[in-house]
Design a protein around this nucleic acid. Structure first.
Length: 828
DNA sequence: AGCACGCCGACT
DNA sequence: GTCGGCGTGCTC
């Protein structure tokens, strides 16, 4: 560590900085520090550097050394953007950990972490060189067009010129023009974050004297009555509030901006520019006093006790058990200890009421951070966290990147949610796992909360890596819903089933409708029918990309692929044998909605699935209609399991549980349990006990039994025991390969080669078919390999090393051209 | 990530 | 013969 605080440092010393560039490049680059900046360099400050021919980037200082690079001449830093570091050293270590753990570059983590307003844009600007006196007639057509355009418009960007000439490669032309001294090329870096400025007005202190003021009015009333009005309005406003903005005064006085401006010119009013926060400002928190129920108190005490020994505690609290109150008590404790709190939520959009609730308790101490915020707002939150102005941050997964000073507690609500995992751009991190690491860096604690914990968290709790606390009673005395399991087979035999609705379910639906209550019907499949089958030759249309059967959608009249989005027209004759005997097999939400409308023509039925919520406000519209009781029955996919807290639903029908009990992947029972428990947890609100009807062929299924008993513990336990007895490890490590190539065949070969190499090293720990398990191919580029993972078996680092090895081989042996392999190791 | 350079097929 | 497509390599 170098010490720069010493004022007597050797100013002629040459320093170098290693910086993180916001690019997907493998290593960090070293730049030289100009002497005059020696004093200002700090780890975590932003610098402007040139990288490549002309581009400029904002980089973050990662290391400071005196050692010059050996193999090349370092370029100079162009500018330092910050007076003090905007990224803490803890954050940089956190970034490095993430890059290592999720196998990506530091720059990619930086990109995900920094709000883009803190990254500067470099826009190449082209201007005409006024000093050029030479002959312009020798220019060719293109060059002439550019010069002509610059005569009309003093400044053009590269993209302007691209548009102007209608061709992509304009740089050579510009370079030539530049060499001929006709144009200037300047690289300007603009600070993109602009604080919001407001003009505030104060009365010149001279007029605090009553005599002076009266005199002023005398003059103004005669010569400029509008201005007199304005001064009067100012005095009136100043009695109500401390700061008066120009806009407010214009509004209040009815005088125009010009009158106010002349008052400012005459120095009767004094104008001052002030930076105004864009963020929602709240008054002091209204400290609502509430008491915990005995069960909540018990859970709280339990959590606190476990925190004494464990860094992470899993709180299993059933739906409506009042976990939030327990969180609030823990947050209060952390704040009282003078530390920061991070409260992570899976999806901000569906949880606005939680934000409101917490705002009531913590007022201005609470900050909100998520991707729906615009850039300027995000920078403000960033700075407030950095300066420790916010005690509590409520945020989606990206909030783990904020510059916390001293994080005492992280709450991960709905810990099992998949939306904590970022899939698309690297880093492919899971915010829950990153939060645990982050808390560890700060010496803070983590509370994982869920009504349906994930397998891995429960496993960790069970093996005493995490603590475990439970809340098994609903808050406010509402009883748990009655769950009835109905055998579809039996009702079919007795012929009491109408299309897909058993008599038992119909009875409950009708009763709810009579009582003006609402019903949710759950069907875990969208579209009308998942399979189209030829009765003659058994041909089924399949997706040309994904090799899965296409689903018939009635609203579009087309066959859709649910993996890649591919669509084709529905054939009227079998493309294989020409027969017209085509049959729709199975059923989805569309069909349920259709059939229900026939059975209950008076009921107001709506559907909620990916197809009906694709457009911007449609989800909100459905939720509003439900709340305003404009919908009696909602048919939906797993979407209905989330964010329906306010609905007055008393009956939940699960049309066919079997489709949920047989997931094709290895976490089948976990997902089945979560989905069933989440859906049935919605039944019954506001003191009224709910009813859940589960229709199934498999009435004795273990998962169903566990849902009835509202107890996941046995399920998970037997699951683990069973896997052990089959010599089957409790977890798999999934390696998602992001192999990009337009040619599916090349892609497949690469994945196959990697699988072979992994097998060579790890033998039968690599499971799945001989070639990698292709779970999804989307736009030709996602494949995944399943790898067995045993506690005492493969080390993560060894797996990663092998993958890196293979990637290098791809590159050196030119197994295929132009491919990028980016493995993503799920950290379970 | 960008960007330049180089190679190859399709056009004035 | 040149334009522009894509593959490849490099950036402190």
């Amino acid at each position: 560590m170098l010490e720069f605080a010493d004022a007597n440092y050797q100013s002629r010393k040459t320093y170098f900085v290693e910086v993180i560039l916001p690019l997907a490049i493998a290593k960090n680059y070293t730049y030289r520090v100009p002497f005059e900046m020696n004093n200002a360099i700090r780890v975590g400050k932003r610098v402007v550097v040139q990288f490549g021919k002309s581009r400029m980037y904002t980089a973050i200082i990662d290391k400071i050394t005196e050692q010059p690079p050996e193999k090349y001449e370092a370029k100079y830093i162009l500018d330092i953007l910050d007076d003090r570091p905007i990224v803490t050293e803890t954050q940089i270590s956190f970034w490095k950990w993430m890059a290592e753990y999720y196998m990506c570059n530091d720059g990619e983590v930086m990109n995900a972490a920094l709000p883009s307003a803190l990254k500067l844009a470099s826009e190449t600007k082209i201007t005409l060189n006024r000093e050029f006196l030479g002959d312009k007639t020798e220019l060719n057509d293109r060059e002439f067009m550019i010069v002509e355009a610059l005569d009309l418009q003093p400044e053009l960007t590269i993209s302007d010129i691209t548009k102007l000439l209608g061709q992509k490669t304009v740089m050579p032309i510009l370079k030539l023009l530049f060499e001929k001294n006709i144009i200037n090329i300047s690289e300007e870096v603009d600070e993109r974050y602009k604080p919001r400025m407001r003009t505030f007005l104060t009365l010149n202190p001279v007029y605090h004297d009553q005599e002076q003021l009266r005199e002023l009015f005398g003059i103004l009333e005669k010569r400029a009555p509008k201005q007199a009005d304005a001064v009067l309005a100012y005095i009136k406003l100043s009695r109500q509030q401390k700061a008066i903005s120009k806009t407010e005064l214009i509004e209040e006085s009815g005088a125009g901006a010009s009158s106010i401006n002349s008052l400012i010119e005459k120095e009767i009013l004094i104008a001052q520019e002030k930076n105004v926060s864009r963020l929602h400002m709240e008054d002091e928190g209204i400290f609502d006093v509430f008491d915990l129920s005995p069960h909540q108190q018990e859970a709280l005490t339990n959590v606190k006790q476990q925190f004494e020994q464990k860094d992470v505690v899993l709180l299993h609290g059933i739906t409506s058990s009042g976990k939030t109150q327990v969180y609030i008590r823990l947050i209060e404790d952390a704040i009282a200890a003078g530390r920061q709190v991070l409260y992570l939520l899976p999806e901000i959009a569906l949880t606005t009421h939680i934000i409101e609730r917490l705002r009531q308790y913590f007022g201005a101490n609470i900050g909100v951070y998520h991707s729906r915020f615009n850039d300027n707002e995000r920078v403000e939150v960033w700075q407030k966290v950095l300066s420790n102005d916010y005690k509590v941050i409520l945020g989606a997964r990206s909030a783990v990147f904020l510059p916390f000073q001293d994080l005492g507690l992280i709450i991960v609500d709905e810990e099992h949610e998949v939306s904590y995992k970022q899939f698309d751009p690297a880093p492919r991190y899971n915010a829950r796992d990153a939060a645990i690491f982050l808390a560890n860096m700060h010496g803070g604690k983590v509370l994982l909360g869920s009504a349906t914990p994930s397998f891995e968290s429960y496993f960790n709790a069970r093996t005493h890596k995490y603590g475990l606390a439970e809340l098994t009673e609903r808050f406010g005395g509402t009883e748990l819903p009655v769950i009835e399991v109905v055998s579809i087979a039996e009702e079919t035999k007795k012929k009491t089933i109408q299309s897909h609705f058993t008599s038992a379910l119909m009875l409950d639906i009708n009763q709810a409708l009579d009582n003006k209550e609402q019903v949710i019907l759950f069907q875990n499949r969208r579209g009308y029918a998942p399979v189209l089958l030829c009765k003659v030759c058994a041909y089924t249309p399949k997706c040309i990309n994904c090799d899965v059967s296409l689903t018939y959608h009635k609203h579009s009249g087309k066959l859709h692929c649910h993996y890649c989005g591919y669509k084709e027209d529905t054939p009227s004759v079998c493309p294989a044998c020409g027969s017209t005997h085509l049959e729709y097999k199975g059923f989805g939400t569309e069909k349920i909605e259709d059939e229900l409308a026939m059975l209950l023509p008076d009921a107001r039925i709506a559907r909620m699935d990916l197809d009906t919520t694709r457009s911007r406000n449609s989800l909100q519209n459905i939720l509003n209609d439900l709340e305003e009781k404009k919908i009696d029955i909602l048919v939906g996919t797993q979407m209905v399991a989330k964010g329906l807290d306010f609905a007055d639903v008393t009956v939940i029908g699960i049309i066919n549980a079997d489709s949920m009990l047989k997931f094709p992947d290895y976490r089948a029972n976990e997902r089945s349990y979560q989905m069933l428990a989440q859906v049935s947890g919605r039944a019954g609100r506001r003191g009224k006990q709910g009813k859940v009807v589960i229709q199934t062929y498999d009435v004795k299924h273990r998962v169903i039994k566990q849902v009835i008993e509202n107890d996941y513990r046995d399920l998970y336990f037997t699951e683990m025991e069973e896997r052990k007895s089959f010599n089957y490890p409790p977890f798999y490590r999934v390696i998602n390969l992001d192999i990009k190539h337009k040619d599916p065949e090349v892609l497949y070969n690469q994945a196959a080669y990697l699988a072979t190499e992994l097998r060579k090293n790890f033998g039968d720990r690599v499971i799945g078919p001989e070639t990698p398990l292709i779970s999804r191919i989307r736009n030709y580029y996602i494949k995944s390999i399943l790898l067995k993972f045993e506690k005492d078996g493969v080390s993560v680092n060894k797996v990663k090393a092998t993958i890196r090895d293979v990637i290098t081989q791809f590159q050196t042996t030119k197994l295929s051209k132009g491919s990028i392999v980016q493995p993503d190791v799920d950290p379970y």
